[in-house]
């Protein structure tokens, strides 16, 4: 069943087309990779899907609903989460607070309920705490639970970002270079967690330059070059593709 569908998306700045007639579909429960050289338009694609960059033409549908004109936070609330290339932790909050802050639709975030509905908010907090603890232990972050997020290592920050996304209870997550700047040991762990989440039914789309790790992880991938999708298929098929080799490695391999 189709979950995310992108049809003929074009986006750009002036005469430069960052995305040129891009179409792709992701089915529910799928684990899909996107590869491509720097500047191929991968991150722009994520930004268009999530509403950070506006498209010039084309359509985005998510879970049967058109996303073309929804503001960023509305897209998130419909179950589509993303991470960024560079970790964007809430540096002065602890790991636990980072996760708690991510939870959607909190009663305690509104001023009037805050004044009059103390007990319900306390109950809500307790529920969120339990959920945050569960995710923290799933991601192996229990040891740093009460550390300021700014003190974490690059890899831990990536795990933290994943944890925050999970607090949203999303249907689909878009991960932008989750393995970049992460040490090999943690890459294995991160990769394992992503696979586990996918097994539990979460749809995942990953942009990644670490082709070895990515092809182990995803059954299907797209390759992009200069704003266009050049091919699609299994990892072997895509990496064997003449155009991909040409674009990605200058034909060396």
């Amino acid at each position: 069943m189709e979950l995310l569908s992108i049809k003929n998306i074009t986006a750009g700045f002036g005469s430069f087309k960052a995305l040129d007639d891009v179409s792709l579909t992701v089915n529910k429960g799928e684990l899909v990779g996107i590869i491509g050289t720097n500047g191929a338009g991968k991150s722009t694609l994520f930004s268009v899907i999530t509403g950070y960059v506006s498209r010039l033409s084309g359509h985005i549908t998510f879970a049967g609903e058109t996303f073309d004109h929804l503001p960023i936070h509305q897209r998130v609330r419909r179950g589509l989460g993303r991470t960024f290339q560079v970790p964007r932790e809430f540096g002065n909050l602890t790991v636990r607070e980072n996760l708690l802050a991510a939870a959607p639709n909190q009663l305690g975030e509104k001023l009037l309920p805050l004044m009059f509905m103390g007990r319900r908010i306390a109950a809500e907090e307790e529920r969120l705490e339990a959920r945050a603890r569960e995710i923290i232990s799933f991601l192996n972050l229990s040891r740093v639970e009460n550390e300021m997020a700014s003190k974490l290592s690059g890899g831990q920050k990536k795990l933290l970002e994943l944890g925050r996304l999970l607090m949203l209870g999303p249907q689909c997550i878009l991960l932008d270079e989750p393995f970049a700047g992460v040490n090999p040991v943690l890459i294995g762990e991160l990769s394992e967690r992503i696979a586990e989440l996918n097994k539990r039914g979460l749809t995942v789309v990953i942009i990644e330059h670490n082709l070895a790790e990515l092809s182990r992880l995803v059954p299907r991938m797209y390759a992009m070059d200069r704003g266009k999708i050049i091919t699609e298929g299994t990892a072997q098929e895509v990496l064997a593709n003449e155009q991909v080799r040409e674009a990605y490695m200058g034909g060396v391999i």
Partner: peptide, 29 residues
């Protein structure tokens, strides 16, 4: 004190620390 220790306080601190991330988590910043 009550306000900044509440979920509201947590949200505004998150926005202070990284607004883009807060928006990516669905907060109407």
């Amino acid at each position: 004190r009550k306000l900044v220790k509440s979920p509201f306080g947590r949200a505004i601190e998150a926005i202070r620390d990284n607004e883009t991330a807060a928006r990516a988590l669905g907060k109407d910043t």
